[in-house]
Amino acid sequence: MANYIFKETQRFTQWWLWLLLFGVLTVVLWPLLGQEALDPSELRGIGIGLVTVLLAMVLLYSMKLETRIGNGRLQYRFTPFFWRWRTYDWGDIQSMELKTFDSLKDYGGWGIRTNFEHWLYNVRGNRGLLIRTKDKTFKLGTQKPQEAARIIQEFEAFKSQNHGG
């Protein structure tokens, strides 16, 4: 086995998403511009809107999907939702394949999603590794499909050597 290591860290860096959030922030702050005086209820509403948008921005900025595969195991985590690595030894994985999908149509969006058949952990794009274990099926989005395909070949070689195919 070549002990090839696949490492990937993905974040929500789509320009249109951040443009949308800054647009909402502008709408929330707009009443502060050009108004001589705002009554306390208006200021309270602006404050709640501002805190909500800023919390959404901080959450989105802090979210990242990290995947590590190699040395006979697969690990992933999606911070800040789970900090500990979820680890699967290759011997516990039944199959691993590269799939193309439509995150919006098939799962209703990005992030941590389910289509009631399996879980999806995806930040962007339409490619992912479909992983099947004895107890669980899940998909990890990837922006590196060529490197993922190499890991799948290494995984299949491991399975055929150690488990008779």
Rank of each mutant, 00 (worst) to 15 (best):
S41Y: 12
N115S: 06
D89A: 08
F138E: 03
F138S: 12
G45T: 04
D89K: 11
T26F: 06
P40H: 00
E36Q: 14
Y88C: 00
L25D: 01
G108V: 05
G111Q: 09
T87N: 00
W110Q: 10
G125S: 10
P80Q: 00
R86I: 07
G109W: 04
D102M: 08
L32P: 12
Y121Q: 06
R127S: 09
F22G: 07
D89T: 08
F101K: 06
L32T: 09
T67A: 05
F116R: 15
E117H: 13
G108W: 05
R86Q: 03
M63P: 13
S95K: 13
E36R: 15
S95T: 14
G125P: 15
W15V: 07
M96Y: 11
G72D: 00
N126T: 15
L19Y: 01
L130H: 15
R132N: 13
E97W: 07
F82W: 04
W83N: 05
L50S: 06
Y88H: 12
G23N: 04
G49D: 03
G47N: 03
V123H: 06
L17F: 06
K136L: 13
G47M: 02
V28L: 05
L60E: 04
R86A: 00
V28M: 04
L50K: 01
G111F: 06
I131S: 13
T13W: 02
L21F: 03
L50M: 09
W15I: 08
V51C: 04
M57E: 02
K64M: 03
K64F: 05
I69Q: 02
R68N: 03
L33K: 14
L20Q: 00
M63R: 07
N71T: 08
Y107T: 12
K136D: 14
G108C: 10
F138H: 10
I93N: 10
I46N: 02
Y107E: 01
G128M: 11
L130M: 15
V27L: 08
W18R: 01
G111C: 11
E117L: 09
T67E: 00
G111T: 12
T133A: 11
D92H: 14
K64C: 07
E36M: 11
F81R: 01
G72A: 03
V123T: 13
F78V: 08
E66S: 14
W119R: 12
L25T: 05
R124F: 07
L43P: 14
D89H: 07
S103K: 10
K105D: 10
L21G: 02
N126C: 07
R113S: 09
I112M: 10
I93Y: 07
K99A: 08
V123K: 10
G91D: 08
P31G: 03
D39R: 15
P80N: 00
S62K: 12
R84H: 00
L130Y: 15
N115V: 09
V58F: 01
L65C: 07
E42N: 08
I112T: 11
N126W: 08
G23T: 08
D39W: 12
T26M: 02
F78H: 03
T67N: 06
Y76I: 02
K99R: 15
L59C: 05
T137R: 15
D135G: 14
W15C: 01
G70P: 11
E117R: 14
G45Q: 04
W16N: 04
M57L: 07
L25C: 02
I48D: 01
L60Y: 12
F101D: 06
Q35I: 09
V28Y: 03
L17Y: 05
G91V: 03
G45E: 00
